[in-house]
Amino acid sequence: MAYDQEMSDLASDLFRTFAQVEYCLKVTGYCVAGRGGAANPDWTRFALEMPPLLDEAGEDVVAAISYMQRRPPKKQVYVDDVLQWRIVAPHAENGNDLIFLYVRRVRNNLFHGGKFNGRFFDPERSRELLEHSITILMAAILMSPPMLEAYENRSD
């Protein structure tokens, strides 16, 4: 498989997994009203109520979290009319919340065009961030019985 196709498949996997996790969050009660009453997933409450990811994680999850902590995804900022990438530590309520914030940043950087313009910028780093994000999202589902049930029994 060509490298570009592998990266496209990983990006699709991240979007699909991310959407499934947000669906599971909302249908299991981790939901808050957003602007105009929009149903928004409550990542922070989920992060606070679940056991620490590292406590029950396998080697792959430990490696993914360690990578995110050592090499967090940067945030695209606009300063003095110039797009820049900066390491910006998000405000997090606990370790789970921080890791989920980083995963959401990976998704946002990709979805909002910060890391992709017909080709992946820094493809090796992008691949690592995509793979680790998917691993973390799947661990979150597996560690929460209600989330796992919602994931396995998806319907309307």
Rank of each mutant, 00 (worst) to 15 (best):
D97Q: 11
G37W: 14
E152H: 15
M138F: 00
S12M: 14
D4V: 11
P145H: 12
A33F: 04
A11Y: 03
T17E: 08
E59S: 14
Y78D: 07
C31W: 03
T135Y: 08
L10W: 04
F111D: 03
Q69S: 06
E49P: 05
A139P: 04
G114E: 12
V62M: 12
K115S: 05
E128Y: 02
E49F: 04
A38I: 09
L129P: 00
L130T: 00
R125L: 10
A19F: 05
R154G: 01
F15P: 08
A57I: 12
L10M: 07
P41Y: 06
R86E: 14
E22L: 06
A2C: 08
R71Y: 13
D42M: 09
S66R: 11
N40T: 02
R16W: 14
T44I: 11
G113E: 07
R71T: 15
N108C: 09
C24A: 15
I99Q: 03
T17W: 00
Y102K: 03
P72C: 11
F111P: 01
V27D: 06
Q84C: 12
L148V: 00
E49H: 12
W43V: 02
H132G: 02
F18V: 06
Q76C: 03
E124P: 00
G29F: 05
M68F: 15
V77C: 09
P146Y: 02
A47R: 12
R127D: 00
R70K: 15
R70F: 09
E128H: 01
R127Y: 03
V61C: 13
R127W: 05
E22Y: 06
P73S: 09
P41H: 10
L110C: 05
G95W: 14
V103L: 08
